[in-house]
Amino acid sequence: MKNEFKVIADLIEKDKKVLDVGCADGTLMKFLKEHKNIKIRGLEISKNKVQECISKGLTVIEGNAEKDLKQFPDKSFDYVVLSQTLQAFLNPELVLNELLRVGKKAIVTIPNFGYWKVRFHLLFRGTMPITKTLPDEWYNTPNLHMCTIKDFVTFVKSRDIKIFKSLALNNLNTSSINENNLIFKNLFADLGIFLIEK
């Protein structure tokens, strides 16, 4: 299991109720169910991935986060997880609001467009950056609204969203982000993980 999921799992206490939005093949769901006794649900848009989840015995609803989160009542989950998908929505703000409505807390991870390799790629090659967390070409990327860690922090603050924890990931290293090191982390982390609440 990738490091990002280990970090997410560490943020969630045992026996909680969790919704994994864009749960893909259910790797994180399965881990949370088996190791933390989490009552876990998934929402996934891809039919093939929904089938994979079913074959793992996971409860998944085929659906689109932009339309289908509204069926869940307010604060019906302890945590709602959104891993590296916020930038792919037509309206990320709407989805973020829905995550925070449905979940008591939300865990959102974003691929950091401020990562030095991304900046270098654009600066020196003059082409759209391709990295481990951003593997697609400009013409086939699902990402519509890329942002940096700094952008995200600025955005949530402007919307009065509380940040409980911000973590920077660079390969296997995890570190905390604070106001003093934000500029530094924005350069050296390829992934940001945020525990937020509204």
Binding site: K47, Q51, I54, T59, I61, E62, F72, S76
Partner: peptide, 17 residues
Amino acid sequence: VIALNSIGADVGFVEIE
């Protein structure tokens, strides 16, 4: 599915092609 989710029931759903 929506009716079940709104009461927090354990519900999965798939639309088959």
